[in-house]
């Protein structure tokens, strides 16, 4: 079962993504800030990271750089309320970009797509 790490400083959103991803059959873990997220990447080896951008303390873009420095094979989805980040080249290193929405279909499809692609690549 693939492990998905959710990094978001909004507790309700963490709970929502956790619920939906579990329902879709993934194992999940959540971090409430970027620092904690990085630690979990070190210690718990997630298969994919759903990363919020605007967070107190370290932001998602910096966290993305650090994750990629450590292991650039982990797929990272930037998940944000700010659709304008899509045009920012700093976010281009991410594997996908999803605008936060109450309809999590796009997020689930993206997670599935990236993990499926990864599996295919491994095979």
């Amino acid at each position: 079962m693939s492990k998905v790490l959710i990094v978001d400083d909004e507790p309700h959103l963490r709970l929502l993504y956790e619920t939906e991803l579990r329902r879709a059959g993934y194992e999940t873990m959540t971090a409430s800030n970027a620092q904690q997220g990085l630690e979990f990447v070190e210690t718990m080896s997630p298969d994919l990271v759903v990363l919020d951008i605007r967070m107190a303390g370290m932001d998602g873009i910096e966290a993305l750089q650090r994750i990629l420095e450590r292991d650039n094979s982990i797929p990272v989805i930037l998940n944000t309320a700010f659709s304008s980040y899509r045009d920012n080249y700093l976010t281009w290193a991410a594997d996908a970009y999803v605008t936060k929405s109450a309809d999590v279909t796009e997020l689930l499809e993206t997670v599935h797509g990236l993990l499926h692609q990864g599996l295919k690549a491994e095979n």
Binding site: E10, L13, A102, V104
Partner: peptide, 17 residues
């Protein structure tokens, strides 16, 4: 608009649930 988006996602997301 951005500040509203996060709570909306939570409300709508759980409502879907």
């Amino acid at each position: 608009a951005h500040e509203l988006r996060n709570p909306l996602v939570a409300i709508g997301g759980f409502a879907r649930s």
